[in-house]
Nucleic acid binder design. Structure first.
Lengths: 402, 402
DNA sequence: TTGTACGCGTTATCAG
DNA sequence: CTGATAACGCGTACAA
């Protein structure tokens, strides 16, 4: 109670002094000419002193600078004039504005918020604004006007295999965006674009190797996204599974069992919309004939499941709970991403998973984009970066009973 | 396996045809003059036909429009020229750019992502770009250049009681932002700004009334944020608690017990950074002398706890687990926000909570801002909107045993 | 209904 | 080292 009242009292009381919106904006803005007049110098000199001080006496520059400051000259305000003038000489200024294209309402998924956090982390301190775009509308409808206005300096995008071609074509065809840099972030590698990628083959390899080391011999893996989105890089990942198997002298065709657990088989709990996609998705299998259960009955030798990502892993565990299979005692589960926690009884994350360096990937993409925008020489260079992944062993995997 | 290979094959093979970045941009841009020449008309006519078609014969307008289209005239590209020209007559164009000021790395909290989702939902289809700003740096350091350039049309912000004054002063003092509209979203009501608010008194009232109806008579409530941020509107909320008590003929001074569960008392599990603030915060009380436990020992009559928000509710539940107090059998818990699930054994959300219409609030703020930016007449009008809250009863509250 | 003329504020060029 | 000048492309008074 004390605390509460203290805060109430602290509330500022200067309602009167708050600068309120005025009816009219100050119509008189300081221009370079004003500064020149005040200095008794020519307009040209002032402009040059500000942009290329090396051509002038230090004394002159200082003088001009101080007058400009005193008069409150604000070059940013006259940006349009500068741009117009510069255009004559074929010079385009940076707008410090980046477009971010994400495939879904990113605010609902940990995966994208982490990517975003990394990007933001770099872009914002560097003075770049961010324009967020949904890739679905990006591909299907007109590009936002900002592109036509040439306000977008570059793009960071995360596109599906089916979308990337349409997206890049649209971008390159907008004459006012045309040749500017595009970064593909954890998605396809696109001709003419830079990219930040992870080795999907490695995910699979690491996960299976871990399971084999624990004595597991029959492993099930997920081949459909819960939300029916295409699974990115699934073939690379499967190649990784197979490689690990073969290194152990096992035949992937026998020891790897695919399972489809698409959306059709789930009954999403009837919660307010804001819960549907949050990390702890409340969902239960529709019934006893959920394909996961069917497959498990058909392959009783299976002791481990490779989920496509953490969210899937969590759902799969719910299904197992449903029929009394315990994790990790009866069945091991591995996720991918390290974005969503699978909670144990103490509220701790027990999910063994392949960690993707998402924030770092976002940061790298942003840094690389800024570099291309800034470095005069290298701006034509596309770059490709590969980030390592790491297996995080927690409690959802255990030695096989068999 | 089949699926996987199918997707691989589907990958587009047109690497050759992809429009790649060209070395030089096309230097020749179509101007109004080009259009005029092609039409055999004057520059003025063309300009006016495009901006004020009502002054011209329909025939003329059509002709000009078609020529402009044919030549590929792009007005957006010549934005700076238009702005420069318009400025002479004191006209400022919209930039279709809104700044969003949030108090922390919003990507980590469900609360802010829901607000954001609502805002985005409205702003993006309307063609507005979003610049995201952290309020800490917003208050402490220089405003981003975009403000000085006059590129920001308006601001939506969520500020703490201690920050709002500094924030609004800074904004109003930037002559190039000056009088433009500012929306306060679920934070303070600020003089000269519009706001979207919820009635905090109502939160408290609803929650306590529900508990009293279940027979609870001694109720504990949280007076410090886990992360030591100030608690917004705590006094209003407490007023709500008290009102409900009094309506039941109970003395708040006796039946309401405050408890401080600030950060000092928690040991955040040593997880990779990306987990620290995710919805299911893995945290345990530092020891047996956690203030919550101390207070519970001192007040054995307490049968219910009012958490400040859902995240706190979840933490509090962990503490109770720690000493074997079951929810809701031994103790009822109520959260606020309806943003984070408290999971039961089946993975369903069991948290009774006061639901804040966050997405709706975001949408409303965005819509209102656009209205002010667009409506010529009303642009000087500040607005205040109040949104209703709703008690969502789930499983974390039950009749009192006592 | 249409055309003429001017200036928005800056910058690079070129001549001193 | 400094100054005069000519655009950049547009939109609007004003005159016709």
């Amino acid at each position: 109670m004390l605390e509460a009242e203290l805060i109430l009292v602290k509330k500022p009381m200067h309602d009167q002094e708050v600068p309120v919106r005025q009816a009219k904006r100050d119509p008189r803005h300081v221009t370079l000419r004003d500064v020149a007049r005040q200095c008794g110098m020519s307009l040209t000199t002032v402009s040059r002193a500000l942009n290329h001080p090396e051509f002038h006496k230090e004394e002159t520059v200082e003088r001009i600078l101080s007058v400009a400051l005193e008069l409150g000259y604000n070059p940013a305000y006259h940006d349009s004039a500068r741009r117009l003038s510069l255009r004559r000489h074929g010079i385009e200024l940076l707008n410090h504005q980046i477009a971010l294209v994400f495939p879904q309402d990113f605010a609902y998924s940990n995966y994208f918020r982490l990517l975003f956090a990394g990007i933001w982390d770099v872009l914002t301190p560097a003075g770049f604004g961010l324009v967020l775009l949904k890739s679905s509308s990006f591909v299907s409808s007109q590009l936002p006007v900002s592109f036509a206005r040439g306000e977008i300096d570059g793009v960071i995008m995360h596109v599906t295999p089916s979308d990337w071609y349409a997206a890049i074509t649209k971008l390159r065809e907008e004459s006012n965006f045309g040749p500017r840099p595009v970064m593909s972030l954890l998605s396809n590698s696109i001709p003419g674009c830079s990219s930040v990628e992870v080795d999907a083959r490695c995910h699979g390899y690491l996960a299976v190797k871990h399971l084999l080391g624990l004595g597991h011999r029959a492993i099930m893996y997920q081949i459909k996204h819960i939300d029916m989105q295409p699974l990115w890089h699934i073939s690379e990942r499967v190649a990784g599974y197979q490689q690990a198997m073969q290194e152990h002298g096992l035949d992937p065709a026998i020891h790897l069992i695919p399972v489809d657990i698409g959306a059709a088989y789930w009954e999403i709990a009837n919660e307010p919309k804001q819960h549907h996609l949050l990390s702890a998705l409340p969902a239960v299998p529709r019934s006893d004939d959920h394909p996961l259960l069917v497959q498990l009955r058909r392959h009783p030798e299976v002791t481990a499941v490779l989920a496509h990502n953490d969210a899937s892993a969590i759902l799969i565990r719910h299904v197992l709970d449903f029929i009394g299979i315990r994790v990790p005692e009866d069945m091991s589960i591995i996720g991918v991403d390290d974005t969503d926690p699978m909670l144990d009884a103490e509220g701790r994350n027990m999910l063994t998973t392949v960690r993707l360096p998402l924030e770092e990937a976002g940061r790298l993409a942003a840094r690389e984009l800024i570099r291309q925008l800034t470095d005069k020489d290298e701006s034509q260079q596309e770059s490709r970066h590969f980030l390592p992944t790491e297996l995080i062993v927690r409690g959802s995997t255990a030695p096989s009973r068999r």
